[in-house]
Write a protein that binds this DNA or RNA. Sequence first.
RNA 1: GGCGCGAUAGCAAAGCGGUUAUGCCGCGGCCUGCAAAGCCGUUUAGACCAGUUCGACUCUGGUUCGCGCCUCCA
Length: 463
Amino acid sequence: MLKIYNTIARDKQVFTPIVAGKVSMYVCGMTVYDYCHLGHARVMVVFDMVNRWLRTSGYDVTYVRNITDIDDKIIKRANENNETIAQLTQRFIDAMDEDSAKLGVIRPDIEPKATEFVGGMLSMIATLIDKGFAYSASNGDVYYAVNNFEGYGKLSGKSLDDLRAGERVEVDTHKKDPMDFVLWKAAKPNEPSWDSPWGKGRPGWHIECSAMSSHHLGQQFDIHGGGQDLQFPHHENEIAQSEAAHSHDGKPCQMVNYWMHNGFVRVDDEKMSKSLGNFFTIRTVLEKYDAEVVRFFILRAHYRSPLNYSDQHLDDAKQALTRLYTSLRGLPIPDAAIDWEQPQAASFKAAMDDDFNTPEAFAVLFDLANELNKTRSLDTAALLRGLAGIVGLLQREPNSYLQSSPALEVVSGNTFDVDALIVLRNEAKKAKNFAEADRIRKELAEVGIVLEDSSQGTIWRRA
RNA sequence: GGCGCGAUAGCAAAGCGGUUAUGCCGCGGCCUGCAAAGCCGUUUAGACCAGUUCGACUCUGGUUCGCGCCUCCA
């Protein structure tokens, strides 16, 4: 029985889908004006894990993750680069796809782009005006009237009074209430724009997600996810828009049943973000670390906990993953369906069902590795690989992981003939010339290659 | 200022009102020509102060510290 921590309830709740056997899930994706950083990687990997576990649990999942391809930063960046908006966004969409594929992320079923849904946004805005939840201002903007939506603040736990008291932005005189937010922005000179009943302009950020989620998943859907920082105002505003627009006879239509928010990636205990400038892009990290190590690093912490990034932590994750792959090395592992009655499989399932407790599930993986190291049982190996596969890990040939690393490629190039040196060393060993044997081993160690002698012969791995 | 989250061993990170989390590192042993890997064993915990309880890391209250949101942000 799956339980999910529902942000809006501030509690773990038993997951019951709207339609038995089916799950509709929407996750706020990226604004594509730059390369993705590790914070984005966490969203992609975490909800990929959620998607995989739901499917493993037998649900027919429709997973939507949007792409924001029009916004201030995109316009600004395109101008700076002297390229069109379409060129810029496509470039970074391609980069994002490349990064996420490396991280083992299964593509969402639907990846709608904001610019392809302007029509839907316009009709939603019109509906909101009709129902009295929005108004067009004299400056050509259209605003949402937060006062008219009774539940405003229910997701983030904020009250309008508190929000107004903490208001740090100068009051825009075009707004009726300082907390009103923009649905449609009047076009400024040299900006891309769409025609609308309120003049040329472009959509605000929040309305994009309301329009795209309802188009693909309906007025009410099961799970909505995103980073913790989107809780307010983005998701709060989505609720206000969608529930007001879809209201019947004045009664709001509940938009989402389960709100999920993943924790931040931090650097030195501070949130990793563009504005702080303390971010590491995925591709930078992948120059040094295997993508599977990064995935393992992200999933070994609970998705709601903060996750500190540092080389030391990545090194730690690398060692741990090495232990797992080492246990599988050299075994002809059969493909076998997972027997969920099996105690370890049951523990794994219990952990995953408890709000996707991957750290606890991973502990089961290490138990299996320990057992496997003792027994060399192919059943155990199959179970370990099978369970890990559910969260997108351990699917490679062990040596593909153990004998490769971005760092090793840089150091050794393709010129190092490890096998030949192993042969030489074994001849030296046979002749009891241990000084020579150790010299060869040391030479390899210096380029990051570790030799291991066993009854099966000598094998190597990267350090 | 308002709202919220957190504080677990050298590092990372979970569960749990009483019984080994787990990984990395360290230490001892086995194995090995020596190593490595592996196995066995092992040292380090629960910020602080009260309370509830037969018993609290786990529940309650308070204190201190850290983080996040309140502005674009995954």
